[in-house]
Design a protein around this nucleic acid. Structure first.
Lengths: 142, 142
DNA sequence: CATTGACCTCAAGTCGACTTGAAGTAGAAC
DNA sequence: GTTCTACTTCAAGTCGACTTGAGGTCAATG
C-alpha cells in the first residue's frame, strides 16, 4: 500500500492535519479514501502541497491557487499570470530595497532625531505621497 | 487658525476618517480638540501619519508603531529595531528575488508541463522543505 | 471484549486593521 | 428657527487562512 495516512502527510509536509482538512474542504487537495474514518492520501499530494506552499509564498490566495489546478488534478498554470506575479514581485522588491536602505541609514544616522535626518525625511515624504507603498493586500513575510 | 479639520486631514493624508478615529483610539494620533463635535488636528499629524504609513510598509504592526512614539509625541525609534527590521527585509528581499526569477523562468519555460521543468521542480522542492518561505506574518504587498 | 487514542465533523473562535451601520448632534446655510 | 449635512459614538461585521473545542467513531492493542 503506497497510500499515506493523514498523520504521515501532515508530518512529511510539515502541515497540521487541520490544515489538510481545510484544504480539502476548499478543494485544494483530495483524499483517495478512508481507512475507517481516517483519510488516506496518494503520495502525489505532497507535490501538490509543495505547489500550494509555493503559490502562497508568491502571494497567491488559496482561491487563486485552486484555479491553477485543472479538473484532472494537473497543474494548469497560466504563464501570463506567472509573469504578472513576477512583475508584481519585482515592484515590491524594489520598494523593499529602498525601504531597507533607508532603515539602515536611519539606524546609523547621527542626527539627534530622525526627523532631522534628511534621508529619513525624504523617505517620510515618499511614504506620505504613497511613493513607497500603501498598505493593501498581504503576502507572507517569512 | 492653523488647525485642520478631520476631513482636511483625511483628504491630505489620503486616509479615511474612520481610520483616523481608529488610530486615535489606538493612541497613534491625537486630536487637539473639537469644533462642535468635529475633531481638529495640528498640522503635525500629517507627518505622524506619514511615519505610521512608513512603519506599516516596513512591516511593523500598529502596536509596534505606537511604541515608537515617546509620551511627548516625538518619535523615539530604537535604532537596533530599525537595523533588525532592515535585516528582516533583506532576507525577505532575497527570497522574493529567487521566487521572482523562478516565476519568470516558469512563465517562459518550454516544458510541456511545469512539473517537467527542472527549474520549477527545484523551486518546488525548496518550497516543500521550507527553503523558500513558509506562510507567516504578513506585510503589505503594495 | 473493553479500552485507548488518534482521527472524525461541525460550529465557532482568532488575529489585525479597518469598515459599516444605526442612531444621535451641532454648526452653517437658508 | 428649521433643515441640511458632515460629523459623532458604539457595537458589530469583514476578510483570509486557519485553529480550537465539543462530542462522536473506529482500528488496533491488551
Amino acid at each position: 500500500m503506497t497510500e499515506l495516512d493523514i498523520a504521515e502527510v501532515s508530518h512529511r509536509a510539515g502541515v497540521p492535519a487541520s490544515t489538510l482538512r481545510y484544504y480539502e474542504e476548499k478543494g485544494l487537495i483530495s483524499s483517495t479514501g478512508r481507512r475507517g474514518l481516517r483519510r488516506q492520501y496518494d503520495p502525489g499530494v505532497l507535490e501538490r502541497l509543495a505547489l500550494i506552499a509555493l503559490g502562497r509564498t508568491a502571494g497567491f490566495s488559496l482561491d487563486e491557487i485552486a484555479q491553477m489546478f485543472a479538473p484532472d488534478g494537473r497543474p494548469r498554470i497560466d504563464r501570463r499570470k506567472l509573469a504578472a506575479k513576477a512583475d508584481e514581485l519585482d515592484h515590491r522588491i524594489r520598494e523593499l530595497g529602498v525601504l531597507r536602505d533607508s532603515l539602515r541609514h536611519a539606524a546609523a544616522c547621527p542626527a539627534p532625531s530622525h526627523l532631522e535626518c534628511p534621508t529619513f525625511r525624504r523617505l517620510l515624504d515618499a511614504a506620505a505621497s504613497g511613493g513607497v507603498a500603501a498598505p493593501g493586500r498581504r503576502v507572507p513575510l517569512r
